[in-house]
């Protein structure tokens, strides 16, 4: 991805607290249905998978299709349990993975 995705995760939370997480990736989400000026089909290239995981375990994920808007925005929530690093990954049709990791301390 040309531009780094944005992830909004609080730096700290109380145990048991519901934490809102927002993510914003930067991607054209080319549907494969469009044609260029010469009339040739522009091949599909989208981010097809999003995942938020903690210590290797997926807490939340999404499978995306071409009907997701350009620059995919996904917001969800988790329950704060443990301090540590939360990993966010986006995978495109070529298998290229973009990863952003952020720490949250839980008290």
């Amino acid at each position: 991805m040309a531009n780094k995705p944005r992830v909004k995760l609080p730096k700290s939370a109380k145990a048991g607290e519901i934490v809102q997480i927002k993510t914003l990736a930067s991607h054209d989400m080319e549907t494969g249905n469009r044609k260029d000026k010469k009339g040739n089909k522009i091949p599909r290239l989208i981010l097809n998978k999003f995942s938020c995981s903690f210590k290797g375990e997926e807490l939340f994920g999404a499978t995306m299709h071409p009907s997701v808007s350009a620059n995919p925005y996904i917001a969800f929530s988790i329950t704060a349990k443990e301090s540590g690093t939360y990993d966010f990954t986006w995978t495109d049709d070529n298998g290229e993975v973009t990863k952003v990791s952020q720490d949250m301390s839980v008290s």
Partner: peptide
Amino acid sequence: ETITFNLTPTGTADVNTRIR
């Protein structure tokens, strides 16, 4: 098909996105 969210027993079942 537009998007499928996979959830686990955490947080709330409340999601937001943007679609075409």
